[in-house]
Nucleic acid binder design. Structure first.
Length: 106
DNA sequence: TTAATGACCTATC
DNA sequence: CGATAGGCCATTA
């Protein structure tokens, strides 16, 4: 099935521990294709199962969340991440140095 | 099947 | 340091 790639991405995103964030490139790396970063964004864009897939824990390389949020907006993103204990920098980004999730190894 | 698009990343000017 | 260009992969039309 062509959705295999998507399924893998959703699985990885679902495995993200609470109170932690990761980047599209990192997810792509966990999926097995470090260059699938764009496809990762596309997979979350369609977001076939909102509420099940914590897209708010997926940020870009800078630590910023994508402008198009399928959950309800950046406001929801801010609340969700804050509710998980994540602090936001004055720039509106997340501190990847502390909350960057490097994989199921933890 | 070909062409175009995209919630990205990296390199260069 | 900030902005621009190109590249990579999969999905959709």
């Amino acid at each position: 099935m062509a959705e295999n790639s998507f399924q893998k991405i959703y699985t990885v995103v679902r495995q993200i521990p609470k109170g932690r964030v990761t980047t599209y490139g990192q997810i792509a790396h966990l999926v097995g294709n470090p260059r699938m970063s764009r496809v990762v964004g596309y997979a979350l864009h369609v977001n076939p199962e909102p509420g099940v897939i914590p897209c708010h824990r997926v940020v870009n390389r800078k630590g910023e969340l994508s402008g198009a949020f399928a959950f309800g907006g950046l406001g929801q993103q801010h609340l969700l991440l804050e509710a998980e204990g994540i602090e936001f920098l004055p720039d509106g980004r997340v501190d990847l140095r502390r909350y960057m999730w490097y994989g199921p190894e933890e």
